[in-house]
Simulated scan of single mutants.
Amino acid sequence: MSVDLSGAHWRKSTYSNGQGGCVEVSDGHAGVMPVRDSKDPAGPSLLFPADAWRAFVTAVKHDEFGSI
Rank of each mutant, 00 (worst) to 15 (best):
M1W: 05
M1R: 11
S2C: 11
S2Q: 15
V3E: 00
D4C: 07
D4V: 05
D4N: 13
D4W: 02
S6T: 13
G7L: 11
H9Q: 14
W10C: 00
W10P: 00
R11H: 12
R11D: 08
R11C: 09
K12D: 04
K12R: 15
K12I: 02
S13G: 10
T14I: 10
T14W: 04
T14N: 13
T14Q: 09
Y15C: 08
Y15V: 08
Y15M: 14
S16D: 02
S16N: 04
G18N: 10
Q19A: 15
Q19I: 08
Q19T: 12
G20F: 02
G20Y: 02
G21D: 15
G21R: 14
C22A: 10
C22I: 06
C22P: 05
V23Y: 02
E24C: 01
E24G: 00
E24F: 01
V25Q: 02
V25I: 15
S26Y: 01
S26Q: 01
D27H: 00
G28Y: 02
G28K: 05
H29D: 01
H29G: 00
H29I: 00
A30R: 04
G31L: 04
G31Q: 06
G31D: 07
G31A: 09
V32R: 00
V32T: 03
M33R: 03
P34A: 02
P34R: 01
V35A: 05
R36G: 03
R36Y: 04
D37Y: 02
D37V: 03
K39G: 07
K39N: 07
K39R: 13
D40C: 09
P41D: 10
G43V: 04
G43S: 11
P44R: 13
P44L: 12
P44Q: 14
P44K: 12
S45C: 13
L46M: 12
L46I: 12
L47F: 08
L47V: 09
P49E: 15
A50F: 09
D51L: 14
A52G: 08
W53G: 03
W53P: 03
W53R: 04
W53E: 04
R54E: 11
R54A: 11
R54M: 06
R54Q: 12
A55E: 15
A55T: 13
A55K: 13
F56R: 06
F56A: 06
V57Q: 11
A59S: 13
A59R: 12
V60F: 01
V60P: 00
K61C: 09
K61P: 03
H62E: 15
H62I: 07
H62D: 15
D63K: 12
F65H: 05
F65C: 01
F65S: 02
G66W: 06
G66H: 07
G66C: 08
G66I: 07
G66M: 07
S67D: 13
S67C: 11
S67F: 10
I68Y: 13
I68N: 14
